[in-house]
């Protein structure tokens, strides 16, 4: 089997201790995915596995054998930015840029979750069909991605803009 990373098949590592994060950064040199704690506590290492956001630091590479992984490098490039990437620049949704890849990967999946009607802790009516997008919905759903520079307002604005354009 193989792990499909941004569309390319790669062999799983020999050492089962290797996390998906270390596979990406140290073995594949896809260092867009960041390591902020290696404790599952900051979200900087967020990637998409079969379209769902997960923490690559707490995922063994062996566990994603046969699955598809998308990292920030797979979302867009400087010449062809993903709408969220462009919106993050526009709204200044970062300063140092270190938590950014995790924020953008998480936001990408989050918009899908909202579209699929998945509720959050701040969703008023769990039984309702469809989620009304609000700043607090975005904040709660993005709370697993810490930012120390304090770019929270810009991040939420960027996501809100893309979410609104998507609906429109």
């Amino acid at each position: 089997m193989a792990i499909v990373v941004n569309g390319t098949r790669v062999a799983p590592p020999d050492d089962p201790r290797v996390s998906l994060l270390d596979l990406l950064r140290d073995r594949l040199h896809l260092s867009g995915t960041k390591i902020g704690c290696n404790q599952g506590a900051c979200g900087a290492c967020t990637v998409l596995v079969d379209g769902k956001r997960v923490l690559s630091c707490l995922t063994l590479a062996a566990q994603v054998d046969g699955r598809s992984v998308v990292t920030i490098e797979g979302l867009g490039s400087a010449d062809d930015l993903h709408p969220l990437q462009a919106a993050f620049i526009e709204h200044d949704g970062f300063q140092c840029g270190y938590c950014t890849a995790g924020q953008i990967c998480a936001a990408t999946a989050m918009l899908e979750e909202i579209a699929a009607g998945m509720p959050s802790y701040v969703t008023e009516d769990l039984g309702a069909d469809g989620i009304a997008i609000s700043r607090d919905e975005i904040r709660e759903r993005m709370s697993g991605n810490l930012c120390r520079c304090g770019a929270h307002n810009g991040i939420v604005d960027a996501i809100l803009q893309v979410a609104t354009e998507k609906v429109a």
């Binding site: 950064r25 040199h29 896809l30 260092s31 867009g32 995915t33 960041k34 390591i35 990292t71 920030i72 490098e73 979302l75 867009g76 490039s77 400087a78 930015l81 990437q85 462009a86 993050f88 620049i89 526009e90 200044d92 970062f94 840029g97 270190y98 950014t100 890849a101 953008i104």
Partner: peptide, 21 residues
């Protein structure tokens, strides 16, 4: 003005100290 390093940071190509191969 938007940050000049914006595209590098949002696409994950800005290289940090532990990322030099």
């Amino acid at each position: 003005a938007s940050r000049l390093d914006g595209p590098a940071k949002v696409t994950g190509t800005a290289r940090f100290a532990a990322e030099v191969a």
